[in-house]
């Protein structure tokens, strides 16, 4: 269980950033006429601003863990509600883009690695470099120019209030998700293709692969059962390390396409100085990263029998 120390570590960093921040984060309340002064005082007291630092930390941490994230200055509802409304959208966009990335990276990376230095491999490599050198914010704009403005195929603003029903409703949702998912998925797919390729190249020259060939197995079986299966182990680790970048990309993508997820919520909150929302969203992103790291660890242990017997 390495997740708990990591969570504590990240929470310490978050809290330190907060504690070091100059000024009172709740100053905003004093100047905001919409917030009555007693609410401000109550908030200050609930956060125990004058207690010793470690007590403040633990109090803050328990509050965060229990989902007591205060309420939004701007939309005046509880932050946890606000985030719960928005989280599914973010997870769906990220989830489908990761599936897309995997669907590209696995076959392409394996094919490239099994034909090293061929034309196909060189094309894949160059495209992969282009793919992850294109920042998501630029690809997003390019896609809008191409698919929405030039071709007029896809809407470039995400619409939460689709009035259609039945199949039409689904179709509209899929249509407006295509570009955000493509932007994120292609970027990750490019990076992962390189991971898969290099992992497969590392495995393909190992002795046990020669053993598998010496058994007289067909090449496809050798590749899938004895090369790809083993190459997945390092790929899982590398993919887990990419999670912070994935979430960064999600924030940008949501902002470009106005997808109502927690990423665009974060940007809106920062522009509106909505401190509780900013804190909570950052915390949720931290939890998500740790969750995916934990998931990666579990998959890793499941893929590599040497781990469980260590």
């Amino acid at each position: 269980m390495i997740a708990i120390p990591s969570l504590l570590g990240i929470s310490v960093i978050l809290f330190t950033v907060l504690a070091l921040a100059p000024g009172d984060p709740f100053e905003e309340l004093a100047t905001n006429p919409a917030i009555p002064p007693e609410v401000r005082l109550q908030l200050r007291a609930s956060l125990g601003m004058d207690d010793p630092i470690y007590i403040r930390y633990f109090r803050w941490l328990f509050a965060m863990l229990q989902g007591e994230w205060g309420f939004s200055f701007v939309s005046r509802i509880n932050v946890d509600q606000l985030i719960l409304q928005r989280l599914p959208t973010t997870l769906i966009v990220i989830g489908s883009s990761q599936i897309l990335a995997l669907a590209i990276a696995l076959p392409v990376g394996v094919l490239a690695a099994t034909r090293p230095y061929s034309i196909f491999d060189q094309v894949v490599n160059t495209l992969a470099f282009v793919g992850f050198s294109l920042p998501t914010f630029f690809t997003g704009l390019l896609f809008i120019m191409f698919f929405s403005i030039w071709l007029g195929w896809l809407p470039f603003v995400y619409n939460t209030n689709i009035t259609a029903t039945g199949w039409q409703w689904w179709w509209e949702h899929i249509r407006q998700s295509i570009m955000p998912v493509l932007v994120l998925g292609l970027f990750q797919g490019a990076a992962w293709t390189r991971f898969v390729r290099s992992a497969v190249l590392d495995v393909i020259r190992l002795d046990h692969v020669t053993t598998a060939r010496a058994k007289g197995l067909p090449e496809s079986r050798v590749t899938i059962r004895h090369v790809v299966r083993n190459a997945l182990i390092p790929v899982v680790t590398l993919v887990a390390l990419q999670m912070p970048i994935v979430f960064g990309g999600a924030i940008v993508t949501e902002q470009i396409f106005r997808v109502p997820g927690i990423g665009s919520l974060l940007i809106t909150a920062i522009l509106a100085n909505d401190t509780p929302v900013i804190m909570a969203v950052t915390f949720v992103f931290a939890c998500l990263v740790i969750f995916f790291n934990l998931l990666a660890d579990i998959i890793y242990g499941w893929l590599d029998p040497r781990i469980s017997y260590r």
Partner: peptide, 20 residues
């Protein structure tokens, strides 16, 4: 730990808090 930090949100948070 730093490798698993959500960098962009933290970057935004820190800039938000310290810029002024």
């Amino acid at each position: 730990l730093f490798l698993s930090l959500p960098q962009l949100p933290l970057l935004l948070l820190i800039i938000y808090l310290f810029r002024d």
